[in-house]
Computed example of a mutant assay.
Amino acid sequence: MNAFAPLLAPLWFAQLFTGAKSFVDNPLIGSTRLNSLGLHAARVQAAQAMTARRRKRLANAVDPEHRTTFDRDGVVEIRDFLSTETFRALQEQLFSYRGPAREMVQGDTITRRLALDPAARRAIPAFEAFRRDGRWQALSRYVSGFDIEPLLYVQSILPQRRDAAPDPQLAFHADTFYPAMKAWLFLEDVPVETGPFAYVKGSHRLTPQRLAWEKQRSLSARDGDCRLSARGSLRIDVSELAALGLPQPSIYAVPANTLLIADTFGFHARSPASTPATRVEIWAYGRRNPFRPARGWDVWSLPGIAERRIPLRWWLGDKAAGLIRQPWRPVGIKGAADG
């Protein structure tokens, strides 16, 4: 690595102005000396400020009640999101669909995803009622801070594997150092015993306490014993929340046809499950370079391209598997609830 440092230095420097977050892959991002001088804290502050400017330009399209809830809590829950007729059609079509699936194993949990690509959308026409819904369009863009089309999947959380390490998603964490959007439209009820989403309300706000915590963690994350923290997804123990002026986590045990959307700069986790169960949902993800000033002008959101991004990302990940880690392995043609 040292022999190539002069060649890689320009790349490492350029990554400071992107969403690159790993403390171990970039010696500048992971530099204890630079972070003690405020490098990580400055990136966090700049990303928050630019997101706030973009959100301000997206705010008028959002329902005022939803915007108020999100600005306060960092998470919005909307029950009975689709009409009963539309939701039942979506359930029937989605559970009947079978397509190319990928799975990732994390500890004792298996996550399966099917891309909502052109073939899936033809087989699940009711999905368009969700994708085109004005509330969804406005709120997903406001939370992500960009006028972009998010990545959309059918996602299944499958029964736990026995005799495996705990799921790392059970630990409360921030996905990255800047605001980003994740959302779930639950196709089935999510009772508390099946491990619902948990979120620390208000933890998406950059308070002085949170900024100090970010700086302190940036000094030790690279050399700590948590691999995911070292790669930029900082973990936090619930015992630390009070010192940051934050409440205990809220658990979102919700009925089917609930939309949940959150800023994953806020602390969140999957709560522990006490009984094996398969959970199926439409899962959405929206994230771009946090230092990009424009809120729109996104070629990846254009019709004809947006719905083909996921297969392309998987294909590129497979081709580059020797250079970058590809955690999503193909498992053949499957349905969302197949065993």
Rank of each mutant, 00 (worst) to 15 (best):
Arg43Thr: 01
Leu82Gly: 01
Phe87Gly: 03
Ile282His: 01
Phe4Leu: 11
Asp263Leu: 08
Thr275Leu: 13
Leu241Val: 11
Leu90Met: 08
Ala171Asp: 03
Leu28His: 06
Leu302Asn: 01
Pro100Ala: 10
Tyr142Asn: 06
Ile157Leu: 15
Ala294Val: 03
Glu92Met: 12
Thr68Tyr: 11
Arg102Ile: 03
Pro179Thr: 12
Lys215Phe: 06
Gly296Lys: 08
Leu228Tyr: 13
Pro6Gly: 04
Trp297His: 13
Glu92Lys: 14
Arg292Thr: 08
Gly99Lys: 05
Leu228Trp: 11
Trp136Ala: 02
Asp263Cys: 06
Ser229Leu: 08
Tyr153Val: 09
Ile110Met: 04
Ser22Pro: 04
Phe70Tyr: 12
Arg131Ser: 06
Ile310Tyr: 06
Thr84Cys: 09
Pro303Trp: 06
Thr84Ala: 15
Ser229Asp: 09
Pro249Leu: 11
Pro290Cys: 06
Gly74Pro: 09
Leu228His: 11
Val254Trp: 10
Leu187Gln: 05
Arg131Pro: 00
Leu323Pro: 01
Leu39Lys: 07
Gln169Leu: 15
Asp263Ser: 04
Ile324Asp: 03
Asp63Met: 07
Ala269Ser: 12
Arg131Asp: 14
Lys215Asn: 09
Ala262Gln: 09
Leu16Arg: 07
Pro290Gly: 10
Ala277Lys: 14
Asp175Cys: 08
Asp80Trp: 05
Trp315Cys: 02
Leu28Pro: 02
Val154Thr: 08
Phe23Tyr: 13
Gly317Glu: 02
Glu103Tyr: 06
Gly145Leu: 13
Gln169Ser: 15
Asp71Phe: 10
Arg235Pro: 00
Val154Pro: 01
Trp213Met: 02
Ala61Leu: 13
Arg329Lys: 15
Ala126Pro: 00
Leu82Pro: 00
Thr258Gln: 02
Ala123Pro: 08
Leu37Phe: 12
Gln48Pro: 01
Val190Asn: 13
Ser301Gln: 08
Thr275Met: 02
